[in-house]
Design a protein around this nucleic acid. Structure first.
Lengths: 225, 225
DNA sequence: GTCTATAAATAGATAGAC
DNA sequence: GTCTATCTATTTATAGAC
């Protein structure tokens, strides 16, 4: 039923040009779905931006839902936090991540639009969004446990660990919504302030000490990293 | 241009039954717009739920956008934090507020759906959402300043005050999105934990002390308040 | 592989009867 | 004040030519 494509693509035979076209369509659809939502974004609008017709889109992705699935898979591949940092430093990786995101406003719009729509039980993006959310919370929780066991964080109960992870997800999602509504705010500054405050609270160490460490950490990974 | 109605309504003359009908329509429209968004929610769907026709809706509200405006005004009147608490205790009022909200899921869906859509420059709900957001942040900032001047909170720079207010808004919005995606989470417990942690951080006092004060504060306003 | 043409359903809005 | 009927535009999806 679903057309699985992302990941194989060795550009052989008739797919040589098709794959490039496919990426163009997915990119345009990503912007349109992010702007107008799944129902509000029409195949017509997407086709016009690529310079083709709705019929061609259907020929590629079977139907509108198939196109949405391709968009979500591309979004996941582009936004997964692939950091190799563990324990305390893992949480610092969320600071430069926001900087990257501001350069791709479309990806943030897509994420928030799909998340809000996925609130409805029968929305096609719902399983995707829910799984993604759980993965993020699980990753945060594991890194908190690792930091506690390494003596970096003060001990916390499993309930508090889950609450803290959910609160961090809430902050990151909520502040991006605020940024979309008012791009003038200092997104990276705010997130950095929050991560430093939170790490100070989790470690029980003074804020200025944590902030100095974050400075060093940011400098060590270089401006272009 | 806008049809101002909410608030006067002394039920005189031909408006006697009309006002009741009007409220029914606004309530149904609130649910539909919250579920499917502004573009995705059709006048037909709303009319069916009220047991009438799209033509009647237009007769009441001129057009679809007029109906949306009425919905947003009703939502504002129903969700404004009307607490008379100032300074530190003002921030505790956000805890029982979430409990009230979970009983009206439709209002939360409407708020998040409209906020996400209002991200688009030409969305009819945009001015409304932006003003509301600014009012909330301003109210929080003022209460933080009051608490600092009263010696309840440690001093903070204006920049940090604004950042902290924006972060609190982010948490409250983000955690409601998580609750919509998974209503099984303990929304009130998580918000209470966050408010206690935040107040402890702002005051510089130990968490258990703040938590005990919150217990007393919650008990003093009674279970039905 | 991509197009034109079109089917079938649904959208917001209007006209006019009662 | 509320309805039926209808207009015009737009939606997703299909059929078939090239």
């Amino acid at each position: 039923m679903t057309v699985s494509v992302a990941g194989d693509g060795a550009a052989r035979g008739p797919y040589k040009n098709g794959l490039k076209r496919r990426r163009e369509i997915v990119e345009a659809a990503s912007l349109v779905f992010g702007q107008y939502g799944y129902h509000g974004g029409s195949l017509r609008t997407i086709a016009e931006r690529v310079g083709t017709t709705p019929a061609t889109l259907v020929a590629y992705f079977t139907n509108k839902e198939g196109l949405l699935v391709a968009v979500l898979e591309a979004w996941r591949d582009a936004t997964t936090n692939g950091s190799t940092e563990h324990g305390l430093d893992h949480f610092r990786t969320y600071i430069p991540l926001r900087g990257d995101h501001t350069e791709h406003r479309g990806l943030i719009e897509l994420f928030l639009t799909m998340s809000t729509e996925a609130t409805q039980p029968d929305h096609p993006a719902r399983p995707f969004i829910i799984e993604r959310q759980q993965m993020t919370i699980q990753g945060m929780s594991e890194n908190m446990v690792a930091a506690i066991e390494a003596g970096q964080f003060r001990p916390m109960s499993p309930t508090v660990i889950e609450w803290e992870a959910r609160l961090l997800v809430a902050v990151l999602d909520g502040i991006e919504l605020e940024w979309l509504l008012d791009p003038g705010i200092d997104l990276v500054g705010i997130v950095r302030h929050h991560m430093d405050s939170t790490i100070a609270r989790w470690t029980g160490r003074p804020l200025d000490e944590i902030a100095a460490e974050t400075d060093a950490w940011l400098a060590s990974r270089g401006p272009n990293d």
